[in-house]
Design a binder for these strands. Structure first.
Length: 425
RNA sequence: CGGGGUAUAGCGCAGUCUGGUAGCGCACUCGCUUUGGGAGCGAGUGGUCGUAAGUUCGAAUCUUACUACCCCGACCA
């Protein structure tokens, strides 16, 4: 992609509406623009990141044996009344009426809809277990949307629902999803903790949250300094106790002491048990030919929230630092004097073509601006590797390889192998 | 929903107290010169001052109501 053709409205100043780093940088780097409170448009660069994360999630879900579907976003009242959630969800459920005055809502989650599908189409235990997922826009009319994409009202989520014949099978699927989530977050290069959590209004037996550790996290978790142990701090606090009082106490798992950290909840996995099957009468025939209520699990990942979380965990005073797995582009060719100097333009264009053919996603900054403008923008939008074609190229056919982390080297322009090595993390 | 704050050009801001018909930086357009860390000179474009009503000869400025957005709290797969 040529930078001159790209819709990339970068900003030098942070809009006053943005308070936290990820929100400021997402606006400044031209990833998103606000449409209404908690509702955003994804611009080309932001959408690329979103899609990269979405695809990583999809790949790992498919590898885990889950199957993708797409459920509607507009949902009829009747299904929600079966579980009594039309009432229970309260104003968080954005309700609308169609032209016949029939009640609908915008889907904030899809247990009812998928359970309806399964009860109508799956009849035997032999068809189980099933794990069905979708990656779809959700709407929750949050009491207070904030921090840009982090707590939006409209957001992209991967939600999956497993249907199992018994508790053992559910446990197996649950652990598979737990491993899958770890793989996803590892691939994105995030530092995270898995913490025991309150299962909240969605109900069910037990749940765990995946927290990306970051200063601006909304959740406070207690972790052990010498084991894997982590738990949402709410669960450790007795009445009137202050969170800071937990710091330094012995960890409940008997290993090490407690540290208090802030986290961004990017994933949540639940064992729901039979509650939805009961209220919605979802059963299959078991091996004895008897109707058996389904055990369910549900597993969510906030795809759009991961974009913000990745920034919160990886930025500096110059801008975003993308992990290579989710960067909107792999390489940015900074061509200095591209419009005037044919030698530089020709070399840059060839490099651009070659790297594209090698399978990299490449930006070519062909604008009429100087080095300063171009490198500042590149650092702001967080591209992992810059290739500078300029004066040094004219002198001795050398280009500079400049990584976002500051490492740099001068190399002969034909030394493509070095470019590749340099790019490897 | 309770508390606090903001609203003037795409972004950042001044002007409001003390009423006189809107300004600065950046961005943008054109020309020339520049091109390895956000370039220089010259000439330009762009705003019903959040909305509505009121006071006044006259309102960005004073009054009232409303709306939007942000922050804290309560809430939250």
């Amino acid at each position: 992609m040529l930078v001159s053709k790209l819709l990339l409205p970068t900003l030098k100043d942070s809009p006053q509406e943005a308070e936290i780093v990820s929100h400021q940088l997402m606006l400044r780097a031209g990833l998103i623009r606000k449409v209404a409170s908690g509702i955003y448009t994804w611009l080309p660069l932001g959408l690329k990141v979103l899609k990269k994360i979405e695809n990583i999630v999809r790949e790992e879900m498919d590898l885990s044996g889950a199957q993708e579907v797409c459920m509607p976003m507009v949902l009829p009242r009747e299904l929600w009344e079966e579980t009594n959630r039309w009432e229970k969800m309260g104003p968080e459920l954005l309700r609308i009426k169609d032209r016949h005055n029939r009640d609908f809502c915008l889907g904030p989650t899809h247990e009812e809809i998928i359970t309806d599908i399964i009860r109508n189409n799956v009849k035997s235990y032999k068809e189980l277990p099933l794990n069905i997922y979708q990656i779809q826009t959700k709407f929750r009319d949050e009491v207070r949307p904030r921090y840009g994409i982090m707590r939006g009202r409209e957001f992209l989520m991967k939600d999956s629902y497993s249907f199992n014949i018994d508790e053992e099978s559910l446990q197996e699927t649950y652990l598979t999803m737990r491993e899958t989530y770890k793989k996803i977050l590892d691939r994105i290069g995030l530092e995270y903790k898995i913490s025991r959590a309150d299962s909240g209004s969605i109900g069910g037996d037990s749940s765990e949250e995946f927290h990306v550790l970051a200063e601006n996290g909304e959740d406070i978790i207690a972790i052990s300094d010498s084991s894997e142990f982590a738990v949402n701090s709410e669960l450790l606090l007795k009445d009137g106790e202050d969170i800071s009082s937990l710091e330094g106490k012995p960890s409940p798992d008997g290993q090490g002491t407690i540290q208090i950290k802030k986290g961004i909840e990017v994933g949540h996995i639940f064992k729901l048990g039979k509650i939805y099957a009961e209220s919605m009468k979802a059963s299959v025939l078991d091996s004895n030919g008897k109707a058996s209520l389904l055990y369910m699990g549900c597993y969510g990942i906030g795809v759009s929230r991961l974009v913000a979380a990745a920034i919160e965990q990886n930025y500096d005073d110059k801008g975003i630092i993308w992990h290579h797995s989710i960067s909107p582009f792999d390489i940015n060719i900074i061509s200095i004097g591209h419009d005037k100097n044919k030698e530089i333009a020709t070399a840059s264009n060839k490099l651009y073509k070659d790297l594209n053919e090698m399978g990299y996603s490449v930006l070519l900054d062909d604008r009429k601006d100087g080095y300063g403008t171009k490198i500042k923008d590149s650092e702001l939008i967080g591209i992992p590797l810059n290739i500078v074609v300029g004066k040094k190229f004219l002198e001795n056919k050398e280009i500079e390889l400049l990584r976002r982390n500051g490492d740099s080297s001068m190399n002969p322009i034909d030394d493509v192998k070095t470019i590749l090595d340099f790019f490897k993390d």
